[in-house]
Simulated assay, not measured.
Amino acid sequence: MIACLLIHGYTGGPYEIEPLSVFLKEETNWHIEVPTLPGHGRKLDLKNVSHKKWIKAAEDSLKALLTKYDEVYLVGFSMGGMIASYLAAKYKVDKLVLLASAGKYLSFKQIVIDIRQVCLDGLKGNIKKNKLYIHYKRKIGAVPFQANLEFLKLVRYTKPYLKDIDANVLIAQGQKDGMVPYKTAYYLDKEINSTKKEVVFFERSRHLICLGEDKDTLNQMVYNFLLKKTENP
């Protein structure tokens, strides 16, 4: 039996990767698990929540799956990608998928482009149709400064473990990502020592790669990557 653990990003929740998790549920008989990290979800409550709690929550989920299933796959989005990398280095997992993984963060060039578009939509009276504005509006004021520091601590803590990963890895990155520079994919490819790695870029995708215009292609690509080993043990 196979299980797949999907880990969402910072200030997000399972909804960020829902199209992919639903697709995998529909196309396979695998056990699909998408935990909500402490303080995350539709209603954020990140006050006094440490990065260690985020890691532990994901780690507890993985440990439970490893006792029940023959094969376990890991999929991590953004901060969840760094958590998944840490877990893949520490435990025996069969496949690792990193989606816009936050090994580096903030593409200022893309942020400027995005802000300009938000401003233009505001001037035209179309601000309520701007997807970036809608997504990040609810987070303004809901994320304590300390939580951002915990995010930085998590990235710093997990980075050294990249070199210890030996599972097969798929790295997917949107070229219009304002939160994680697209060149981060090259950085991950260089740091991870796995012998089998694939790096894929999506021209139309922003940071929320699972919800973007390329989501159908991404879903199929992740599915094909994860399926390879089950077809060819």
Rank of each mutant, 00 (worst) to 15 (best):
G12S: 10
P14D: 14
P14G: 13
Y15G: 01
F23Y: 15
T28D: 12
N29K: 13
L37T: 01
K43H: 07
L44E: 06
D45A: 15
N48H: 13
S50A: 13
H51W: 15
K53G: 05
W54R: 13
E59W: 05
Y73W: 11
L74G: 12
F77E: 13
G80F: 00
G80P: 11
G80H: 07
G80K: 03
A88D: 03
K92W: 01
V93S: 02
D94C: 02
L98M: 11
L98N: 08
L99C: 04
K104L: 08
S107H: 14
Q110H: 06
I113N: 07
I113R: 15
I113Y: 06
Q117F: 01
L120H: 04
D121M: 05
N126E: 14
N126H: 11
K129S: 11
N130I: 02
N130M: 03
L132E: 04
Y136M: 09
K137N: 14
I140C: 10
A142V: 09
P144Y: 11
F145S: 15
Q146D: 13
A147L: 08
K153Y: 10
K153A: 07
Y157M: 15
K159C: 01
P160Y: 11
Y161R: 03
K163F: 01
D164Q: 10
I165K: 03
N168M: 00
N168P: 00
L170E: 08
A172K: 00
Q175E: 14
M179S: 14
L188H: 08
K190S: 08
K196A: 11
E203S: 10
D214E: 14
L218W: 02
L218P: 04
Q220T: 04
Q220K: 12
M221Q: 14
F225S: 08
F225H: 10
